[in-house]
Amino acid sequence: MSSTVSAIQRSALGFVLVLVIFGTLPLVVSSYQMSIANEILIFALLAMSIDVLAGYAGRTSLGHGALFGISTYVVIYWTSVYGGSAWVGCLLGVVVATLVAAIFAAFAVRVSGVYFLLLTLALGMIVWGVCLRWTSITGGENGIRGVGRPDLIASPTAFYYATLAVVLLMTFLIWRFVRSPFGLTLRGIRDSESRMRSLGYGTSAHMFVAFTVTGFFAGVAGALYALFNNFVSPSTVQLSQSVEGLLMAIIGGIGTLFGSFIGAAAIIMLENFVSAYTARWQMVLGVMFIVTMIFAPQGILGTLRMLLIRKR
């Protein structure tokens, strides 16, 4: 049981680090850098939702960017076109993302491996196509402009702390989720689906629930993004959104949860700070990804964890 205790200690350390680092940032950085940190938090949540499937259930999804974006669309549409309240909009966004995730899940539970990847990719492309073509609702590739945040979280600092609170809460829920009996069944399905079935598990039902739940978390991230960006267009649901979320999870370390914060920070900071020096920043990103794959295939946090365990 000693390993369980130290795992809990590690996770507690993760929470404390996230809280301290992100909690004190606004005191020391400019408003722009705070907005970058805000974005990092939102994308870390998206990356975590992908990590639950990739790292625990062994299913690499390329559809979660679309689920994220659906929530963003719903929030922006609800507030700016329909004129509804942002709070209700966020609720609706998350609900719709979760429902669409359930529809995705109904298809995706039937497959695994590269077929799962391709199927989620195709489902995501359908969402993108709909957002692009259904011009009367989505505004086509011009997108929809938002109406700004509610007064309570209108200031960047207030919104930043609101995001931090929500993301921490979601992180805690995800953490509980992957450590629950249900979370264990996902790791079982990853290792051997046939054994799970012969033990009496309806693996499809488990994958369905897991996919839908991760869709919920992606939806929460998407709703936050709507409030943050105040704008939505098909690029928010496009494939590169899913790929970026996946890269963040991979660079941070698949199956580590907290690695998503590191991965999101690495990629978003690279995009924003390196691009100030060179237009070839995408190449830098590519090189960084390759280097990670070769020298730290378990990601930054995964490798650190391995080194620590080895030392002991």
Partner: peptide, 22 residues
């Protein structure tokens, strides 16, 4: 132990418990 946990719960309750202890 985790293998056994999965085996025990296979025929019983609690396999959908999402926020309970492992």
């Amino acid at each position: 132990d985790e293998n056994m946990q999965l085996a025990v719960r296979g025929n019983g309750d609690g396999k959908f418990s999402m926020f309970g202890a492992a």
